[in-house]
Amino acid sequence: MSDNLVLEAKSVSKFFGTITALQNVDLHLNKGEVLGVVGDNGAGKSTLMKVLSGLYKPSEGSLFFDKEKVTLNSPRDSQNLGLEMVYQDLALAGNLPIGDNIFLGREPTRKVGPFNFLDHKKRKQLTEEHLAKLKINVKSADQKVEELSGGQRQAVAIARATAFNAKIVLMDEPTAALAVKEVGKVLDLILNLKKLGVSVIVISHRMDDIFTVCDRVMALFQGTNFAESELKNTSRDEVIGWIMGKKD
């Protein structure tokens, strides 16, 4: 298993003043693996994700990307290492078309004399290819994001995160705001990423999500590692127990 290790956190702690958000937390992630992270509100899930993406610096402990020890100073650093975060509030501009959102800040351009102009054709083509690769169905790449359903927006956010060959994608509650019929599509998309060899960490409260897409699940309780298991060796009731801090 350790041959495939893409991301590892070793005894990571994070303190905010006198508050201990994380205490000696370990985490590892293999290539093409989907890891579920569960825990009650305040268990430290989001803090751990922010440490992994470089938004927070760990107070103690170290991070390893592809078995190399790294120090992340900003989310830019983790992006350069192939880690992308899908934010809970999606971070999309509703007034812009799908393609513009996917390539926002990294627009393809072409040079005309001394000037760089947007390459609208290339952006459209890259967008259509990428959406097709992820099997995301929308009417057109030129559709504005505000015209999309919640599930489609989540899909665009994931497409944005993976447009530049991300190896690791972190998702914070990807199905929390979705209608029931759309949850399945987003879960399919996560399984699709797995097939493409992308490693995914999913934070979720929903046992259905965890038991549909994850290979392994780990539970945090009050900022510490509480329990962890391959999915096939555990049950919904057991995982729900972990969230509430109960272990047999």
Partner: peptide, 17 residues
């Protein structure tokens, strides 16, 4: 047709994004 122009619209749509 420029990136800055696109970003001006993006800021108006969602500065957080």
């Amino acid at each position: 047709h420029t990136r800055i122009g696109k970003w001006i619209y993006a800021i108006g749509g969602n500065p957080g994004a």
